[in-house]
Simulated scan of single mutants.
Amino acid sequence: MPQVSQKGRQMPESPIRKLVPFAEAAKKKGHKVYHLNIGQPDIKTPEVALKAVKDNHIEILEYSHSAGFESYRNKLSQYYTNQGLPVNTEDIIITTGGSEALLFALGSTMDSGDEIIIPEPFYANYNGFSVASGVKVVPVISTIDEGFALPPVADFEKLITPKTKAILICNPGNPTGYLYTKEEIQQLADLVKKHDLFLIADEVYREFTYDGDKHYSVMNVPGLEQYAIMIDSVSKRYSMCGARIGCIVSKNKEVMATAMKFAQARLSPPTIAQIASEAALDTPQSYFDEVIHEYKDRRDTLISELNKIQGVKVATPKGAFYCIAKLPVESADKFAQWLLENFDLNGETVMVAPAAGFYSSPNVGLDEIRIAYVLKKEDLVRSVQILKEALLQYNK
């Protein structure tokens, strides 16, 4: 009998989606499930983006340019310039989501067996993308006690080998919500220049920052032009996860020429979704002001409620819309499944993402969960009430 590939066997399951069958079973029992497990915003997609698709009269749904519409890239360049990032049209390739941009970045900078250093916990799919690319993830652990701040640069430096090709960060972070300071980004910039590495920054949550803190991009660092690769996406910024439009950005000509070969091999990014994404760039600032205000309120509500539960520890996120909570359980995996299979509070339960899947180090984060605060405040309060009661029953 034919066998699947070793690479396929090593491909990790999504910690976010693997509990879906249990959630579906809970719903079939008539239970309401509050989804704290996935970063699908409930914020409305900007009307200007939806209108561009509704009002379009395309007669032939053609391929686009492999790098994406030139009109979109021009407009995107202007958007970045307005954000204070010196990005030109030729520095951008449009991709099928930020996911494809990451795959292009790995494929353009690494060979099979090469190593990439990533502060963990990290976006779970970095594991999957690395396995698919034949790249070894070398984790450097950040901790809840330090609020998931950047580990000391010395911790990175001792992990660098001749096989190391890049450092990858998510800023602000998924799953931690940590926002790297200008000083931390500069420390990483100095390190990659010293060791001739790439610094890949996933910046899809750039707009989502709180408490007056500012996002500092790798594209802002003078002298880092040949080392920096930025990953971006419309998914969270405009609540357009289903559009599957992102981009890879770099001033390194050789990197972009190489990424273009991968772009040509997959032909082109989605045409209709590019129309929506280009129009989304006309979204008024008032939209973002309202969204950020709403998420800050949700964050404050969630953290306040979680802090009321005895034995729960949580780091206050500075950006994005996630937090990591440490629970008084041995296995968050088993607890998350139990919540869906065996528990309800007046017909309601919650779905969370066990955080062990956001680490590549074995046996780390076993008692942690990731919560996405993408629900309205009253639903978050109710969800934490359910979580509190569930922990009491579970630990009996």
Rank of each mutant, 00 (worst) to 15 (best):
R266K: 11
R244V: 00
A243Q: 09
S5D: 12
G39P: 09
H65W: 04
V329M: 14
E203H: 09
K44E: 15
A325I: 13
R382Q: 14
A132N: 07
L191F: 05
S14I: 15
P172C: 12
V364C: 05
V4D: 01
N125K: 13
G113F: 05
A356C: 01
Y373W: 09
T161G: 15
R244N: 12
D202S: 12
E330K: 15
I292P: 07
S142I: 00
R9L: 11
P222A: 07
V153D: 02
F122D: 03
K251I: 00
E278C: 08
T89A: 06
G8K: 14
K214M: 07
N56W: 14
D300K: 01
N220H: 06
K51H: 12
F262K: 04
I292L: 15
K236P: 06
N74E: 11
L19H: 13
S277V: 02
V352E: 02
D145W: 00
I292G: 05
S235F: 07
S133W: 06
G30C: 15
I231A: 11
N174C: 12
S108P: 13
A166S: 09
P270G: 14
I324Q: 03
E254M: 10
I303S: 03
D213F: 02
Y373N: 02
Q274F: 02
Y359A: 04
I185V: 14
A67D: 10
D55G: 01
Y210T: 07
D367Y: 09
A279Q: 10
K136E: 14
V352C: 12
L306W: 03
V291N: 14
Q187I: 11
T109V: 05
I303F: 08
G128A: 15
Y80E: 03
Q310I: 09
A257C: 05
R73E: 03
E59P: 06
T181C: 04
V137F: 10
I272A: 13
V87Q: 08
N125Q: 11
R206A: 14
I58A: 14
D91Y: 13
D155G: 02
A132I: 02
Q187C: 08
Y373I: 01
G39K: 03
V20I: 15
A166P: 00
I94F: 06
P317R: 00
Y295W: 04
A166K: 00
Q40N: 11
S66T: 05
V204L: 05
M219F: 11
S250A: 13
K376G: 02
L50A: 08
T89Q: 14
I94N: 00
L188I: 10
D145L: 02
N56H: 14
Q226Y: 09
R266Q: 12
S233V: 05
R9Q: 08
V131H: 03
E47K: 13
Y216S: 05
